[in-house]
């Protein structure tokens, strides 16, 4: 039963990893930008949640209402003021600029919040659980987070394929010049994409901070999990990313079940195995 439990917990954890990945996947899809600072922005959102929670004395899950728009604004500003200048044929500038950003965010957080690990408490809901047959207990909070993750991925899928924003994202991604001719200002479109990405990051960050402890150096690890989920699932496929997150979460929990020291290693190895066997991921998007 421990094994079944490990797998179920892994699936629930996978929802969080899919949230780490979704924002990364979105901006790659729209502007071919890989944001190395993505993980640090997740941690930044967690710290913002912490500040809002302690300042207002509200439940951390409620702080999303404030943190999400703030992160969205940060994303829009970041894109318009910095990242748009790096986009072009050369992959080096966006990579190195977001890498610099990562170092700035990490050390800025260190300066403000110190290196001590923090955690947000969501109250009684954290310990609530429902019993399943076979003596298994399913935590209510992980379950809520998983369902939220699925809903967010579904919503992103809808925005991308059914809404006017998504049409603008896809058109700009296809051909920037012609999209400009359609009256789309690509700087603005990219700003919106980054804003949306960071709204998802805000939710991911708060969930992270409620689920586990976090510190200013936790960002790169989250970036790597998100990245692995994207590659496992296949580039450009959001539901694939969810599957990738789940595979990663389950692998980690199975690894931990064998030996507590193997949790992260097992996840990385699952990623490398899939990269070796199916380099385009499990569910690559069929273009055309």
């Amino acid at each position: 039963m421990d094994w079944v439990n490990a797998i179920i917990q892994g699936i629930l954890l996978g929802g969080l990893y899919a949230l780490f990945a979704a924002g990364l996947s979105l901006i790659f899809g729209v502007m071919r930008l890989v944001n190395i600072a993505h993980g640090d922005l997740i941690v930044l959102a967690a710290f913002l949640g912490l500040t809002v929670t302690t300042a207002l004395g509200i439940n951390p899950l409620l702080s999303i209402v404030i943190v999400a728009p703030v992160m969205g604004l940060i994303g829009y500003a970041l894109q318009r003021l910095v990242l748009n200048r790096t986009l072009g044929d050369d992959i080096l500038p966006p990579l190195l600029v977001t890498f610099g950003l990562s170092v700035i965010i990490q050390n800025g957080l260190l300066e403000i919040y110190s290196a001590d690990p923090q955690k947000m408490s969501a109250g009684a809901i954290e310990t609530a659980s429902v019993g399943l047959p076979g003596g298994l207990n399913l935590g209510i909070l992980p379950l809520i987070m998983f369902v939220t993750a699925v809903v967010i991925i579904g919503a992103l899928q809808w925005v991308f394929y059914r809404s006017a924003w998504g049409r603008a994202f896809r058109a700009t991604s296809d051909n920037q010049d012609i999209a400009q001719l359609m009256g789309l200002n690509k700087s603005h479109v990219f700003g919106l994409a980054m804003a949306l990405s960071l709204v998802v990051v805000a939710v991911a960050g708060i969930f992270l901070g409620v689920r586990t402890s976090f510190d200013p150096a936790a960002g790169p690890g989250r970036l790597i999990f998100g990245f692995e989920a994207v590659i496992i699932g296949g580039l450009g496929n959001l539901w694939g990313t969810l599957a990738g997150g789940i595979i990663l979460g389950v692998s980690q929990n199975i690894g931990a079940q064998i030996n507590p020291g193997w949790q992260l290693l097992a996840g990385h190895i699952a990623f490398l195995v899939i990269l070796a066997v199916r380099p385009r991921g499990l569910f690559p998007r069929i273009d055309g």
């Binding site: 896809r170 296809d174 051909n175």
Partner: peptide, 14 residues
Amino acid sequence: QLFPSLSVEENLII
């Protein structure tokens, strides 16, 4: 230079 990710109607709407 149509947008390959968009359907015929979406290309018109845009």
